[in-house]
Amino acid sequence: MISLANFYRVFFAILLSKFPFQNAQSPPKNISLSSRFLDSVLQDYAFRSFFRHRQVTGVIYDGNVSPELTGITVSALRLRSGGLRRKGYFGYKEFDIPAGVFENPYVERVVLVYQNLGNWSSVYYPMPGYLYLSPVVGLFAYNASLSPAKVLPELDLRASEDPILIKFESFGVLKDGVSPKCVFFDLFGGVEFDRVVNGSVCKGIKQGHFGVVVEENVPAPVPAPAMMPVKGPENPIAVGGDGGDKKGGSNGWWVGGMVGGVFLVVAAAAVYGVMVAVRRCVRRRRVEKMEYVTEGGVSLAVVAVGNGKMPVAMEMRTKPVLENEYVT
């Protein structure tokens, strides 16, 4: 019984035989194959590289494609899902995969397949009105069962924290007014544009194909307008007469009211402070007077008694007189 992978290879070979190749480096424009079918074929070529080597986790294995697809390169990378999520993987061809990337559904080991479509980019991913400045590259995740008898299930690879970076080679100096754009092709035929960062870097959060394009017919830059005389304000703040600007007048009253309110608050605070100081002074004078009256105007001596001090009268104020002294 023929497997699904072998069926795809046979069908692909028969389909390619219908269109003779004159030059593999310049693919004919009349070929129209499904990009998803191409993904399955390139997946099979990438997985074959594992069986030619000892399978080592974290090592990139480059695959070989058929002569009919010369110009396309594929690679495979086997990783542990836990390590991929904790550490990421940097330097997988053009891709820098950050920590926090996860696959759905979860598997213990994952195989990341890399594609570089080279000069086939515009064939499988045509962009009318745009020119490619880079080849279209792809990244896909598969369950790492590595069974050659069946097509491995495709996983949904997404970034949860930092985005995936796709670092293309420098595009050189572009003409003035020409701004490159990142283009992303998802697995369902959708196309998204984004800006290029750091000169030649694109960002993505999920698996698919990436490239850099520029508009084919970029319009000439619009010349800057001639210098015009500076025009005065249409709504002057100063208002005079009945025909003045009511809005400017209301703004003036509003500012004046604010200044007056602040002045009143400051004045009230100052008056309150003076009143508090006067009350404290009067109270202090009253206490001093009461103390003077209590002591009878005569200050008493102070002597130490134990650990404290207390006032005492050193002598009697009235000299005592005996009763016999009154008898003459």
Rank of each mutant, 00 (worst) to 15 (best):
Y132G: 04
D39H: 06
D245R: 07
K167W: 05
D242Q: 08
L15G: 11
F21C: 13
V212G: 02
P233S: 09
V151R: 04
S250Y: 09
N251S: 08
V312N: 06
R36N: 13
G100W: 04
D39G: 05
V218Q: 13
Y114H: 11
G208V: 01
E108M: 08
P236K: 01
N324Q: 13
V212I: 14
R48M: 03
G273P: 00
R158P: 06
A304I: 08
R52E: 07
W254N: 15
V302Q: 09
V196C: 02
S147I: 00
Q43G: 07
I72E: 05
S26W: 03
D156K: 14
V278C: 05
V282T: 08
I205Y: 09
N198S: 15
V218I: 13
Y45V: 00
E216H: 08
K29G: 06
E161H: 13
D62Q: 12
E68R: 09
Y124C: 01
G189Q: 02
F188Q: 14
G208R: 02
S32Q: 13
G138M: 08
L38W: 03
E94P: 00
E323Y: 13
K175C: 03
K203T: 07
E291T: 04
V303G: 08
F19R: 12
P180E: 02
V293A: 15
V10R: 13
L155H: 12
F50H: 04
E288S: 09
Y326M: 06
E215P: 05
V302G: 02
L117N: 08
S250L: 14
R280C: 00
R86S: 04
G260T: 13
P20L: 03
Y45S: 07
R80T: 03
M275D: 07
P320D: 09
V271T: 06
L139Q: 00
R36S: 08
L79V: 11
R279V: 05
V255E: 15
A220F: 05
V191M: 11
V136D: 05
V262W: 06
S299T: 15
V59T: 12
F185D: 07
Q115I: 01
R286N: 14
S121D: 07
D156L: 14
V178C: 10
Y114E: 06
Y124I: 09
P223N: 06
Y326D: 02
V201H: 00
L165D: 06
D44L: 13
V196R: 04
V113E: 01
M316K: 15
G177Q: 04
F21G: 08
D176H: 10
I237Y: 12
D44V: 11
E295C: 02
L79I: 10
L139V: 05
D39I: 01
D96W: 07
F102I: 11
V74D: 04
G63D: 03
V230Y: 02
V303N: 08
G260M: 10
E216N: 10
D62R: 10
G240W: 03
M316T: 15
S179F: 12
V65I: 10
G208L: 03
S121Y: 04
I14G: 03
Q55W: 01
T57R: 11
L174E: 06
G306Y: 11
P219K: 09
